[in-house]
Amino acid sequence: MLDFTQAIIDGIAIGSLYALIAIGYSMVFGVLQFVNFAHGELFMLGAYFVMLFLTMGAPLWVAILFSLLSVGTIAVVIERIAYKPLRKHSRLAPLITAVAMSLFLQNIIQVLFSPNSLSFPINIPGNIVTLGELFVRIRDIGIFSLTLLLAFLLELFLFKTKAGTGIRALAMHADASKLCGVPFNRTVSLTFFIGAVLAVIAGTIQGMATNQIFPLMGVNAGLKAFAAAVLGGIGEIRGAVLGGLVLGISESMLVSYGLSTYKDGFAFVILILVLLIRPQGILGRTQLVKV
């Protein structure tokens, strides 16, 4: 029981990062029924941009803000120039383009920076406190709380603002939302921007917690977050958060029970099982899922 509880505690930080990335997959899927396979690269770009602005002498909050704006804009531009023109013609074409886009972004960062990992200029120390027999990293509690706060703010935005309501309406019924006056292109862009913002925050946390960033850091994180989004019910914000946490904690359990070799493959086992047994995911509704 002690191991079990400890594994949960150890898993929430990584689970939170999966959750933050998964929300982006989920929202974009919600509005376009499209999986942005380049989404993991936004996480990576976010970390690189923060590092770039930090080395230019910006204070951390400015670096993060600029990175959010830059990567958010990149996400919107990618959608406009690479996905949008293909949308009318087939569902497969944008998917393939997204995979190509992800390779492109990985490679451009390798060229501009270095194929090797770089050390991140700012780091959050991993101080540990003991709670009885349990070990808790204060940092992990912070990451978890921040994730819940961001998810809460996002829901507030989606339910209380006009633009957010537009996103929900578009996700429920695209044609009906257009007939009600929801501007389609602008709303899609906004969705990509929000997804990018959360991915950038996750990338920055990853950089600060592990102290290093590398051009392929978005690959693993992206695939796992995608699995998490499907697990929770793609299209559902709460599902993405839940799926991310469940995946992070499951991985940490595998490690604590001596099965760490299988850790990275576990997301795919989950992905396959969910698609076979409950394709709509934990919180999803059947009609929304068209994977």
């Binding site: 006009k162 309501t165 537009g166 929900r168 309406a169 429920m172 019924h173 044609d175 009906a176 939302s177 007939l179 009600c180 006056g181 929801v182 009609q287």
Partner: peptide
């Protein structure tokens, strides 16, 4: 009909006024 399934009747009516 294309009502917004997860929205209440009231929210659907509010959506109708979205363009205003």
């Amino acid at each position: 009909r294309m009502v917004f399934p997860d929205m209440t009747v009231k929210e659907n009516l509010f959506m109708g006024a979205f363009c205003t």
